[in-house]
């Protein structure tokens, strides 16, 4: 079987999964521009490593995983340099919470979360990862992840129209759309 043209694969992925990937990128980064850059960077990285993938659904899974890795690595890298040299100006929000789209309260609340809190929220409530899995992915302790999730939930619940104290409901079977 001949290898598909990369441009065609990219177009297929964008057409079939672009909005889902962008939504995921948006929850991770808190911004439209950040989501766009993250999706594109992850897609390039995925296709470079897996040029023989021709199933856009398989690619979508790889791209999502790569987005997560790139984003977490980015947060860690920035945090490390801030720790190394504490006299740092405001980190570029164009990198992780690109400019704060003034679309709605949810946008503002999401963009206003600290990057690690927002990432924990995305992994928990968008990826449906367990606390233990999040801890592994973010290389944090379970307790730190729980603290981040509580903070994220506390700050997002009012704008999402749900109670911050509502018991968390997790699916008992894997979601088919994933």
């Amino acid at each position: 079987m001949s290898r598909p043209d990369i441009a065609e694969v990219v177009a297929d992925v964008y057409r079939e999964a672009g909005s889902r990937l962008a939504a995921y990128g948006y929850v991770l980064t808190g911004s439209h521009h950040g989501a766009e850059e993250l999706v594109q960077a992850a897609l390039v990285k995925t296709l470079v490593k897996r040029r023989r993938l021709d199933d856009h659904r398989a690619i979508e899974g790889y791209v999502r995983a790569t987005m997560r890795t790139l984003h977490i690595d980015g947060i860690r890298r920035d945090a490390t340099w801030r720790r190394l040299v504490p006299k740092v100006a405001t980190p570029d929000p164009h990198e992780h919470a690109e400019h704060v789209e003034d679309h709605d309260d949810i946008s503002r609340a999401l963009a206003g979360l600290p990057p690690r809190v927002r990432t924990a929220v995305a992994l928990r409530f968008y990826d449906d990862l367990t606390v233990a899995d999040i801890a592994v992915a973010m290389r944090l302790s379970d307790g730190t992840v729980k603290k981040y999730l509580a903070e994220g939930r506390q700050r997002l619940a009012p704008v999402l129209g749900v109670s911050a104290d509502e018991p968390e409901r997790m699916p008992v079977v894997e979601r088919s759309e994933r």
Partner: peptide, 28 residues
């Protein structure tokens, strides 16, 4: 539900961002 509310909000933004993902040639 927090999950559904977050997904619903994110979906709207994802649909807004997706049309901008048109740099196929650039990515390729």
């Amino acid at each position: 539900d927090f999950h559904d509310a977050l997904r619903s909000a994110a979906r709207r933004h994802g649909e807004a961002v997706a049309p901008g993902l048109t740099a196929d040639a650039v990515v390729a």
